[in-house]
């Protein structure tokens, strides 16, 4: 009886955006009279953080501090259409729509600033502090609060913008499957280190080494959240999760968290993660969708590590102690 250690690998890619496209999202942005920019969306934050990412994209494009940006989502009376949060599409679609809206608003902002400062709009710049300045003449500047007031009460201008991102739908050719399914692809490779108890069949995942290529990490702390939580879900899928443990039989399905098992805080592996960035030409500042991909590579990496540890090839998920023990028994019988 022993604890057997093994290592396994898996590498994957994952598409960004609704399969075959045809999934628009819109963003509207307007400045209040005191220079706060409100982004109106109908996009849903499931915890992945689109509210924060949308604000970052707008602040970057406007050239203003993020404190000047508010996100108002999701009310179908006030927010323009969004296809929804799924298919690793939120950051890509909504981010692009917000950038487009913010770019239009920025154009108006600079036009009004040019009038206020009596200069050419092309000679103006922003530096992220809240001021619009004449390039090379630091004292020739106006703060966004003063500018927004002037736009409204003096120039009769709305500082606003409209944005939409649409990848036009592609229909597959039924005979061959020829199609244009995605906007870009993110990538991941996992090395998993496991320990298999050959007496109990229990598999423990000790370490995960993950390299992710994600286009651009718009917010590195939130990207870290996504990959770390996603890899945990991969471990959970690999070792524990199913609503039908004796599939295709419908019996013994769990009805609660006592029966539906997931790794708790004492069961988690050490994760070593690294990001690579190969910016996507069509991504918001190069970003690709990563929310879904992160759970995928750990599952086969763990299956392969179990084989490496004890010679049992598990062809069925999840990799329960029962399956490991049956596999070990089969090895002994042959």
């Amino acid at each position: 009886m022993a604890k057997l250690r093994g290592r396994g690998y898996a590498s994957v890619n994952y598409p960004t955006g609704m399969n075959l496209g045809g999934d628009p999202s819109q963003a509207l942005i307007h400045a209040t009279t005191t220079g706060t920019f409100v982004i109106s969306l109908s996009s849903v934050d499931l915890g992945q953080g689109i509210k924060t990412i949308a604000a970052q994209c707008a602040a970057e494009t406007l050239g203003l501090p993020i404190e000047n940006v508010l996100v108002d989502t999701a009310d179908t009376d006030t927010g323009p259409h969004c296809m929804g949060t799924f298919a690793s599409r939120g950051t890509h679609r909504v981010g692009n729509a917000v950038i487009m809206a913010a770019a239009e608003a920025r154009g108006v902002m600079l036009e009004v600033a040019a009038e206020e400062l009596e200069v050419d709009a092309a000679d103006l710049e922003t530096d992220g502090t809240g001021f619009i300045r004449l390039k090379g003449a630091q004292e020739k500047a106006i703060h966004i609060t003063d500018l927004a007031l002037a736009a409204h009460f003096k120039h009769g201008r709305t500082i606003s913008g409209r944005g939409i991102y649409l990848k036009e739908p592609s229909a597959p050719v039924p005979e061959t499957g020829e199609m244009d399914p995605d906007s870009c692809q993110a990538h991941a490779c996992t090395a998993a280190v496991v320990e298999v108890d050959d007496e109990t069949g229990v598999v423990e995942v000790l370490e995960l080494y993950n390299a992710y290529e994600i286009g651009r990490a718009l917010n590195p702390a939130m990207a870290t959240q996504q990959v770390e939580g996603g890899a945990w879900m991969g471990v959970s899928h690999a070792l524990f999760e199913t609503t039908e443990p004796y599939y295709p039989s419908r019996d013994h399905g769990p009805h609660d968290f006592a029966g539906y098992l997931m790794p708790g805080p004492a069961d988690i592996p050490v994760q070593h993660s690294l990001f690579l960035e190969r910016p996507a030409g069509n991504g918001p500042y190069g970003a690709k969708g990563i929310g879904e991909m992160t759970a995928n590579a750990p599952i086969p990496a763990i299956a392969n590590a179990i084989f490496d540890a004890c010679g049992v090839r598990l062809e069925s998920m999840p990799f329960t102690p029962e399956r490991v023990l049956r596999g070990l028994d089969a090895l002994r019988d042959t």
């Binding site: 959240q225 770390e228 890899a231 945990w232 968290f257 997931m262 708790g264 994760q271």
Partner: peptide, 13 residues
């Protein structure tokens, strides 16, 4: 925290 379920973070944070 072992009686508390989190589905997003993986618990480490």
């Amino acid at each position: 925290i072992s009686g508390n379920v989190c589905r997003c973070t993986g618990y480490r944070p």
